[in-house]
Design a protein around this nucleic acid. Sequence first.
DNA 1: CGATGTCATGACACCGATGTCATGACATCG
DNA 2: CGATGTCATGACATCGGTGTCATGACATCG
Lengths: 362, 362
Amino acid sequence: MSTIYDVAHRAGVSPKTVSRVLNGDGPVGEKTREAVEAAMRELGYVRSNAARMMRAQKSGIIGLITGAISTRNQPSTQQGLPDLYIVQGIQRALESSGMTVMIADTAGRNDRVPHLIDTFLSHRVEGLIYVAEYHQEVNLPQLPDDTPLVLANCYDSRGTPSVVPDDRRLQADLVRRLIASGHRRIAYLSLRPDMAAGRLRPQGYRDALAEAGLPFDPALLVHVDFDQPEIGPQLLWDTIDRMLRLPEPPSVLCCGNDQMAMMVYGILRSMGRRVPDEIGVAGFDNYRAIAETLFPPLTTVELPYNAIGARAGERLMHLISGEGRDDHSPVLVAGPVHWRASVIELRPENVVTFRTLREESK
Amino acid sequence: MSTIYDVAHRAGVSPKTVSRVLNGDGPVGEKTREAVEAAMRELGYVRSNAARMMRAQKSGIIGLITGAISTRNQPSTQQGLPDLYIVQGIQRALESSGMTVMIADTAGRNDRVPHLIDTFLSHRVEGLIYVAEYHQEVNLPQLPDDTPLVLANCYDSRGTPSVVPDDRRLQADLVRRLIASGHRRIAYLSLRPDMAAGRLRPQGYRDALAEAGLPFDPALLVHVDFDQPEIGPQLLWDTIDRMLRLPEPPSVLCCGNDQMAMMVYGILRSMGRRVPDEIGVAGFDNYRAIAETLFPPLTTVELPYNAIGARAGERLMHLISGEGRDDHSPVLVAGPVHWRASVIELRPENVVTFRTLREESK
DNA sequence: CGATGTCATGACACCGATGTCATGACATCG
DNA sequence: CGATGTCATGACATCGGTGTCATGACATCG
């Protein structure tokens, strides 16, 4: 691969002049510039980042650590693929900054993280983002002070800047919407409580009930470890069966995430219950490959992983440029409810009223 | 960030000695080594890749270009997330080589590819892999001769080394298995024929029929653009409806991929047809988040994207090390059929026989 | 005991780009 | 017309490692 010396030689100028053409800084004569550009073209010259970075002491690289790429093979496929969307959002946010994003994958092994961090440091990254697969607490090794770090979809006890989903509020928004549609007996099938989502979402569910003055019925809130290898579906079946036999059965099953909702569809079907006429189903995540393809399409709330990534990217850029509000509190991100055919409006008259009102107000 | 000079100064030795400790090449006295290691630890020294790479003229970086990360937001979610698994396989294959994999994302815009290639070249990558989202022909800009390139999940007309799925054989394997289970009227709902998968898979379907001496009925092979925004589901419904009204309706619906199969589940359900008793459904991809979670679980054939990635990684390493068979033919990758509850065995007696035979042979 | 070999270490150049400073050719101004 | 300023360009040092060669201290051998 050719160097500026090759280019300089061919154009009959000094390397420094080539550098000037490359960077457009110092003044360069018109003819000289053309000669240099021609030489670069002819040689297929591409600037070496290594050399440039050595002088500049800036790598222009942002390091991204994630399990997004290698974790999907796990037996329990759990959530959708949140971390992937987060990575996407980060890329989008950093695109305009001219930074190169370097992605390293944990390959599902958290013990590799320190090694990955070292690799990144050896590339002198200007900042690091750690993306967790699901909302959780993490504990990363300490970084050198001059390398800023942002946590996405996770947080730690050291107050490292982080961006996380507002699970509680999202779930409350969805349940509010169900209540507004006339549903009164709303069941909640929660994820395991050792996950942040399994704690915060039920809280949001209860928030919405309380707001509406509806009683909280413990029989309608169950944690189901639905993605356990063998017995998961059975656990889910039993739970639903029990709920449907209650004196006052629920009119909607709110699921911990969209994948659980997909499984619930199958179970209700083989129980002979029709969705949504006999019983509604709602999800969480707006994992579109599922929510839009299921039949009927799934009502769910969008956890905007893209936005989480974007916010994390922005936050990191702020840290790097130093223009920081040194605000250490986590950034909470929420998203919209997607109302689809898996839940019926128990008060169609209201909808008519609303529509009528809007028509009238035109 | 500290340098070997800092370390050398602190340990009271020359930079060269520090370098020797780092690389373990030249002889170093026991006490000296300890002193240097202590100094490195105290300073939190991390070697600069830029400087090292400059001398060594080797970056130790492999460039990966993919849309895996940013394409998921498309309205039509089409396939699963193949490219992601491919990236995973590549990482696994390259892990042991000590190479750092740098991933760049097209952000869904193919016009960005040349820019990404330039960025990679400026980092002096030792090789490049281009990963396509689905099996297709591509046309990348020419690379400098000294930078090897491997295409994964795609191919070009220049004979660039490539690794692609053996769609034809995979589909044939699945259909063979259906035939072996006693199915005779097998419908095939194909993807659009402008995709490689929409051409090769139907061929495999016909191969298997021909082998078994079964007639090919054009009424049972239809291309359905099922993931079209609005009308997709309707198209699929109409097609299935037409097939089920045939004088001799199919006993299994073979779908172009798992996501189409998921949609077919919903449609059959609302038609009041039970899976698998009244009609079987088979997919393609073994997209586990769907295949294993659907109820009943989906019979499908595994397109081992991981393996495609792994093979691509290996092929690139061969090209880099030069120990090449300069074999320009594409590498075809196949995978196993996963037999699940979405298709019944029409000849249970055979299964009993097999089992009995195995029991007896013990 | 002198010649030769091995070991531990350092001096120095070099990789490719770029910041600093210098230089020569002109243009402008008092 | 000489002083000063601007423009286009080049010489040289430098970034942080590492390859090459040199050097001094010992050990070994004939």
